[in-house]
Design a protein around this nucleic acid. Structure first.
Lengths: 369, 369
DNA sequence: CTGAAAGCGCTTACAG
DNA sequence: CTGAAAGCGCTTACAG
């Protein structure tokens, strides 16, 4: 009836379907479906039996069929802009791992934040694929056009490190302000008074937030903000070097530098060493990100570990949980209130920071304050 | 008949299906299908008419349905291991762009090259998703278990920069040996005789190939290979610094250093400057990769641009072309012979390399050779 | 605890 | 150049 022969065994065996499993196990396809989906209400023996047959036939439910019939694609989309960013890499890493655990798959799409046809690009992706959810990273997560396109298609999405909490979408982020404050506090507690900061790229909110934390810490300790100790960078190594030269050639050079990320901190380290300054003896340096290199340079860098991995995992959970009917699980985008998770960062103190000796420099005279 | 009412306009309109389009356009769904798939043999007027209706109803064919009925998923998988590698980032970038152009989507999966259940992880991905093809990057593209799992599932795949051409799979790569040879030749042609090399990570074939090219160039010019000028690195910045200190403290220090990648080259630059050496005056430095930083440091680095983007695009084309019936397109994995593409790299000469002056150093005496 | 039926939205042969 | 039918492999209500 439904097959040409029986026990047919061609050269290249077709993958087993749910019907094959049902026939072999002597049950209905519905029961097989229940086993596959781990639904309750299947007799233990039946379940066992079905599972054995599934294993023997090497049965793998076909996503496209599940998707068409069930209305979920088991696909999560990740939209990103800066392909070189270590941040996106970390997020992607966490997301693929969590997706695997949850039986989902991650579809990535690189978009230009300023492309004229951005909305169309987003629409084409979601309308065709119908992913069960989307993860957006900066700066896309703050792009109104992108968010609108996603809303139009009714695709749930979660924002990672958005510029501001968006009432319409759940988000996951760390507390940049607080982290920067902590690291500045650390420097202050080490006796530093002339603490410089190298700011990150102008268009990224993280830059602003870290600067805020820096300023807040100074203020809290009654240290005046010295404009000469604030230099603009753009998160790249070369700007770190440049900024450092600028800072270290001041009459009164800083005794500590807080670089808004590790890459720039490395630049400072390099510049300092070239100028013959000891780190941390003559200059303390702190970074942000805890990149692999931060732990490997000499001296190893004091920095802040961003929980990119955990943020990505939380994002996936928020998305997957939205649809799942797992009992009392909190619905992510429930009307009651959209979730905005703030994950814990970690201050990592290594050897690039030490107590300020503030010894006399070649400039005018010893520090007076 | 097939709908509850007519012209029904609920709050949240369901996406239009092929049936809606067919009805509105007054044609059969088969004709709509033909238009969607750009098949020939549709009257221009009919096509026009259908296209208008599709646009008006904002019709988007549903992938899962296309996939189930047609047997192609419009999904390409990218398997990678090292999430931090700029290489993977570049490949992914090129792949997503090409996929978008071709109407495909990229599903990524991060795997541990030494995970005990690697084959199962691969199998779970391909058996469920049934991607139309897979792209493998090093070191996964050289992992026999991964390749076997893929073969078992009959998923076409293309290898990017494999250790050796695999007769079973098409591949795409650049010529590392030749590129390294060229860059070494450049240094030789500038008059350098004591050219050091900092090798890359031991377990990567690229390290071996670049060293080969270096050795070949020396040999071709009758320059003896000096073991003292060969230092092991691992592609990271810190090992570049370390290797440089080692090299530059030799009695007869090299006048040029070829670092097997830019990150290490930056390390050399930093170390050299710290030791008070002028670059390129006292020391020429060459890298490999053409990372963004390479162009931005001072002096900007002479290096080699790897065509990661093009390799990824070629890989996608190979995969998509395999199934496509686009006229005389060459089938990728045709029995006749598997394609192994070698893409052109580009030697990028900047200011970190210059003619060797080979002036007397503080060591014993001036160079004698 | 288990199953028979209908249907998800397309594409594939086949006809004409 | 166009269409009617069957079917891809599952899940969703609904029954029992």
């Amino acid at each position: 009836m439904d097959s040409k022969g029986l026990g047919q065994n061609p050269r290249m065996p077709k993958p087993a379907t749910i019907i094959d499993v049902a026939r072999e196990a002597g049950v209905s396809i519905k029961t097989v479906s229940r086993v596959v989906n781990r639904e309750a209400g299947v007799h233990a023996d039946t379940r066992e039996q079905v599972e054995q047959v599934m294993a023997r036939l090497h049965y793998r439910p076909k996503q496209s069929a599940r998707s068409l019939a069930g209305g979920r694609s088991f696909l999560i989309g990740l939209l990103y802009y800066d392909p070189s960013a270590a941040f996106v890499g970390g997020v992607q890493q966490g997301a693929t791992l969590r997706c695997r655990e949850a039986g989902y798959h991650l579809v990535v799409e690189s978009l230009h934040n300023d492309a004229p046809d951005l909305p169309m690009q987003v629409d084409r992706m979601v309308s065709a694929l119908r992913p069960d959810g989307m993860i957006l990273t900066p700066p896309l997560c703050d792009n109104p056009q992108v968010l609108q396109a996603l809303r139009d298609s009714q695709t749930p999405c979660v924002l990672i490190s958005p510029a501001a909490d968006n009432p319409a979408h759940p988000s996951v982020r760390m507390d940049d302000v607080h982290a920067a404050e902590e690291i500045t506090n650390l420097l202050i507690s080490l006796g530093h008074q002339r603490i410089a900061i190298i700011k990150g790229a102008r268009d990224q909110v993280a830059s602003k937030r870290r600067y805020q934390g820096y300023a807040a810490a100074l203020k809290a300790h009654g240290i005046a903000l010295d404009k000469d100790l604030v230099v603009q960078g753009d998160f790249t190594f070369p700007t770190g070097v440049e900024a450092a030269y600028q800072l270290l050639s001041r009459r009164q050079r800083p005794t500590a530098v807080f670089a808004s990320n590790d890459e720039m901190a490395l630049g400072v380290l390099v510049a300092a060493q070239r100028l013959g300054l000891e780190v941390p003896g003559d200059l303390s340096i702190a970074g942000f990100d805890d990149t692999p290199a931060a732990a490997r340079v000499w001296p190893p860098l004091t920095t802040v570990r961003q929980p990119m991995d955990e943020m990505a995992r939380a994002a996936v959970d928020l998305l997957v949980g939205t649809r799942a009917s797992d009992g009392g699980a909190k619905t992510a985008a429930a009307g009651a209130g959209t979730q905005h998770k703030v994950l814990k960062h970690e201050l990592i103190v290594r050897d690039s920071t030490a107590a300020s000796v503030d010894k006399p420099t070649r400039s005018r005279k010893a520090a007076s304050s």
